[in-house]
Design a protein around this nucleic acid. Structure first.
Lengths: 242, 242
DNA sequence: GGCTCAAATTGAGTTTGACTCATTATTTTT
DNA sequence: AAAAATAATGAGTCAAACTCAATTTGAGCC
């Protein structure tokens, strides 16, 4: 009366449930890849997973929920892959460049997921949500950026979320237009340009001016050198030693 | 036999057809604003327009086509409004800033249209398409940018389409996240940041640094001059001349 | 006005596919 | 092994996009 949940052996039960759920998800993933959102039939997924249609509904309360689970999985995997992709690169900007290149290539390969992220993201009142997974993904950028700020490579006054939206936004939009245009995809030009913008706006150091008036870091180095010398000289002059 | 089209009075006929089509579109627009894409029923649109359901299908071959026509209309209007919004501003960057502010505000007010532009844009084999309208809209950016290049205010080597994708992409993504976050929308911070990036990357002239340290061209020139003098002084002091 | 005919309109009917739920099968508990 | 609880089933429901044979409308002609 006070409690409805019965005692049961959790291992086997949970395993079975999990494996069945995974079966359904796998079937849905394949079907989605083949036919897209509109072409995916719940009956088809059930057949493919080897269960009855009703069973699908006992794991996912609607078609949208099923797809949402798929989208969540996609972003979770993407987060791992993105982390792996930037691992080998040193320094804030090289890491960001690697992330950008990884992301735009991934988007072009599978734009349908990005599309669903937009479409299914706003709908409320659903059991399944993938906002956590998407958040975890964008955090990859945030971490690199913040570390850059800590190290003094990036303007400390900059707001991360604004930079992040510019970063992901321009990449997603570019991916979309490149797909529409259909031609051989010059993704690198897009990434190069984005990095130039980021460097120009966010880099804490001076960088070569486009018109080549002076290489500021050179000037900095000269100034540092000359300052050291001046300090030495000052110390010598100030010393009362004959 | 050779020709099926019969002679008829084109004015009245065309007018009637046009007005009925406009009625249907208006009904659809209102319903869409109230209920969104999924909530819009073809039967409801027909009722509202005062025609039978079949009539709707003689003007628009599917629900998606009807919505597509709506989206096309939206972008066409937006193009006019955007042109009006930048009219009062002088100079490339002020014009771009006005365009950015106009666009992000518009997106936040009616994000559903941007969403549909993405979802319905890729589907092929439809009678209705809105790519022309969208193209006309993005051309507003292109014109300002190219004029800036002609005038020498903007880096002539820059590729317009890359800059455009960065511009619209970051604005649309920011609009989305601002809507999700729901809070009072700091759109101006987004626009400011975007303009800083554009200025830093694309401006052909020098401009003040974001941290307000100094007008760099002046500072750089002074530093270069003073560094040279210091170097000379150091050299003299360090020289073993008695 | 009345006649003819092609085009426009109608709405009852078809189809499709997401979702439900009474029944059956399986597993756990005793 | 019987009872109880839980899971799986798939025929059936239902909503909504879409169709089409029948009807209405209106232009051109006498």
């Amino acid at each position: 009366m006070s409690k409805l949940a019965p005692p049961k052996s959790p291992q086997t039960y949970a395993q079975k449930v999990a494996s069945k759920e995974a079966n359904i998800l796998r079937a849905a993933k394949t079907t989605f890849a083949e036919k897209g959102y509109a072409g995916l039939r719940m009956s088809g997924v059930a057949r493919r997973a080897g269960v009855a249609e009703g069973t699908v509904y006992s794991y996912f309360s609607s078609k949208d929920d099923l797809i949402r689970a798929l989208v969540g999985e996609y972003w979770a995997e993407l987060t791992c892959d993105a982390r792996a992709a930037i691992k080998g690169h040193n320094g804030t900007f090289p890491k960001l460049r690697a992330l950008a290149q990884f992301h735009i290539d991934g988007l072009i390969a599978r734009y349908d997921y990005a599309e669903l992220t937009i479409t299914l993201g706003r709908q409320s009142g659903s059991a399944v949500s993938f906002t956590d997974e998407v958040r975890a993904f964008v955090r990859v950028f945030d971490e690199v950026f913040k570390k850059g700020q800590d190290r003094g490579e990036i303007d400390r006054a900059a707001e991360v979320w604004i930079a992040r939206d510019l970063f992901y936004g321009s990449l997603e939009y570019s991916a979309r237009t490149l797909i529409l245009r259909g031609a051989g995809n010059p993704t690198q030009a897009v990434v190069d340009n984005l990095m130039q913008c980021l460097r120009a706006r966010y880099s804490a150091q001076y960088r070569p001016r486009p018109d080549g008036i002076a290489a500021p870091e050179t000037l900095l180095r000269r100034q540092e050198a000359v300052t050291s010398k001046l300090e030495a000289i000052c110390a010598k002059l100030a010393a009362p030693t004959g």
